[in-house]
């Protein structure tokens, strides 16, 4: 339970850490766009994206093994979608067939393509969460969502809800582990039976978890009230987001990446 590191902050003092959070969120979105721009049949764009990730990781002073551990959380989805593509994609030449199973070259291509794409996106997104604390992400989002205030969207409340949710993920995860152990000690069986039986076995875990989450929410609300919380009215911020020259460098680098990807696509004569 505890080794899902996706979305965990890795504190360090680095160039990437010091970038403005809203900028980093925009850059992450831009990175995802770049990954999507890569043409289906020429993977060189992916290589460029991967190079970008490696360089960013080095600059962020994050151990490269961290990248692998972020991927672990999505292995199932990746394998699942790849398998779907391999077995059910019927376009292209058939390269292998046995009884009713037909595997086409297009299917294999697409499977690899999708796998690389998902992995790159997950790694890119987790680079954001490794180098930006949840609070900074929430603040960054608050800044980016600020224009929505015009249509009376509760931006501050939304950001606070997000940061509290992030803050309680590890707490609730520990709690889940504890409840599972407690129920096992009472003879609950989570390992045997088919998938429906196992899903049903989780009910005695989910209900106590839900109840305790509500209790926590109640207590947290009291504690926040006790500390004079009154919504966004006349509230100040201790950590002020500042923009600097570094952020411009970030934008330029990512602009370069997108341009590179588009150029590589064009270089092979196929425009997306």
């Amino acid at each position: 339970m505890k080794d899902i590191t996706f979305g965990q902050y890795f504190p360090a003092k680095s160039f990437v850490h010091s970038l403005n959070a809203s900028v980093k969120i925009l850059l992450t979105i831009a990175f995802i766009v770049a990954v999507f721009l890569v043409n289906q049949y020429y993977f060189l764009g992916f290589a460029l994206c991967f190079l970008f990730i490696l360089i960013t990781t080095a600059f962020a002073k994050i151990p490269f093994t961290k990248l692998l551990s972020s991927v672990r959380a999505v292995v199932f989805i990746v394998v699942f979608s790849a398998v779907l593509q391999v077995f059910f994609n019927k376009t292209g030449k058939v390269v292998f067939s046995w009884r009713f199973i037909k595997i086409t070259d297009a299917g294999v291509y697409t499977a690899i393509y999708i796998t690389v794409r998902i992995l790159l996106i997950v790694i890119g997104a987790s680079l954001l969460t490794y180098t930006t604390s949840p609070v900074e992400i929430a603040d960054g989002l608050e800044f980016l969502l600020y224009p929505l205030k015009v249509i009376r969207f509760p931006v501050h409340e939304f950001a606070l809800i997000m940061s509290i949710a992030l803050r309680f993920i590890p707490t609730l995860m520990n709690e889940t582990g504890r409840i599972i152990k407690a129920q096992k000690a009472r003879g609950a069986d989570f390992e045997s039976g088919n998938i429906f039986k196992r899903a049903k076995a989780l009910i005695p875990v989910l209900i106590p978890l839900l109840i305790s989450a509500f209790r926590r929410a109640d207590e947290l609300a009291d504690a926040m009230d006790a500390r004079c919380y009154a919504g966004s009215k006349k509230r100040t911020k201790y950590k002020k987001a500042t923009f600097s020259f570094r952020d411009a460098i970030g934008f330029i680098t990512l602009g370069g990446l997108i341009a590179g990807v588009v150029l590589l696509n064009g270089f092979f004569g196929v425009i997306v």
Partner: peptide, 28 residues
């Protein structure tokens, strides 16, 4: 309160300590 876990709002110690003064609208 009783449970320390349910009183902490933020994921970094200093941000949590800053929560109260921020609510009062105190200068940075």
């Amino acid at each position: 309160f009783q449970n320390p876990e349910n009183q902490l709002v933020a994921s970094i110690v200093e941000d949590d300590v800053a929560f109260g003064p921020e609510n009062l609208g105190i200068e940075r």
